[in-house]
Write a protein that binds this DNA or RNA. Structure first.
Lengths: 182, 182
DNA sequence: CGTAGCATGTAAGTTGTTACATGATTCG
DNA sequence: CGAATCATGTAACAACTTACATGCTACG
């Protein structure tokens, strides 16, 4: 059995928060679920059409002056049911694929400095990410204090923080190990 | 620019440890890099042919009695160069895609028990994973004590342990939060 | 006698990425 | 005047998954 289109459900989920266009969806994805989910336009627009064909969403075209038309999509009751059904099913186990670890695994074939550089870059990325999580947390407390979704959004944020800290701890520990050895 | 075939390098890397067949590769992947990299036969066999065409590996057919022939692949000098070159390049940033978090993010639309069940399942998986890491660590110390690759293999293992512990900590913390709220 | 292991491969289908195409407005 | 933003979409291409196909041996 072929894998199910996950982007579909990401879009249904976001549309459950309110009607919006493909463009809006892209924007919203970036600053809401961006740290654990991404979609590009090349995925969003065809998927919206697919959802419309299945009657899970409806489209309304909004004319604008000076700007292109907007296609506003709304969840239908069937779409909401479909979303609920998906949410209730256990998440499928993710297939691990970590390029950094693969490169480190074969570290014996390159100078130690190369492996160190890989980890340094990794450390920088996660340090920045952790700072971003702090910013998200502030925004979450300020702008969404009584939003019904907030406790759940905080759960995903907390996940990110835990992972980021683990990434940083491992990076520093490993860099130290590599330094001591040399 | 299209994304580069990563499976290619995974296979080159494993072949750098010694000549072997596609079948062997699958086996080796499972118990060496299995916790951060996976490949199925549908990917391995075509990729080996592709590598052969590029002269990065050579094939020798070994006849066996009572069993099918084995195609043994070996790294060529060009293959080793190609591997080294790839190892020296910075790992491309991974695109995040976490189904569990996506489901939790929209937790407001399902009973709290559903979200709890998701996290429980997640906890069980990582608990098991952490136990497996302990087994890998034992094997690493016993069977590969003076292997040149060992320090690097330990680095990837340590990564897994850090992440697994973070996953468990988050799971337990979050389950507690959800319990208190209810 | 069914199942698992050994061993290799093909084919079909889906997903996801990237580049391309368009065109107006606003801002520096 | 160039760049960025708004806004939607298509086409081409990789990459990956799954199922299918084959056939022998050993084991319980």
């Amino acid at each position: 059995m072929a894998r199910v289109n996950q982007s579909q459900f990401a879009l249904l989920g976001l549309l459950s928060l309110g009607p919006m266009s493909g463009y809006d969806l892209r924007q919203l994805i970036a600053w809401s679920v961006g740290h654990f989910w991404r979609e590009g336009y090349g995925q969003i627009y065809p998927t919206l059409q697919h959802l419309e064909k299945q009657r899970l969403v409806t489209k309304k075209t909004q004319r604008q002056k000076g700007k292109p038309d907007r296609n506003i999509y709304s969840l239908t009751p069937a779409g909401r049911d479909r979303l609920r059904q998906w949410l209730s099913q256990p998440a499928s186990p993710e297939v691990p694929r970590n390029e950094l670890l693969l490169k480190l695994f074969f570290g014996q074939w390159v100078p130690a400095a190369a492996s160190r550089a890989q980890i340094e870059a990794h450390r920088r990325i996660w340090k920045k990410q952790l700072e971003e999580y702090a910013a998200i947390r502030r925004r979450l407390l300020e702008e969404h204090e009584q939003d019904a979704g907030r406790p759940f959004w905080e759960i995903t944020l907390s996940y990110g923080e835990h992972i980021a800290k683990a990434q940083l701890a491992w990076s520093q520990e490993t860099l130290k190990k590599l330094r001591d050895k040399k």
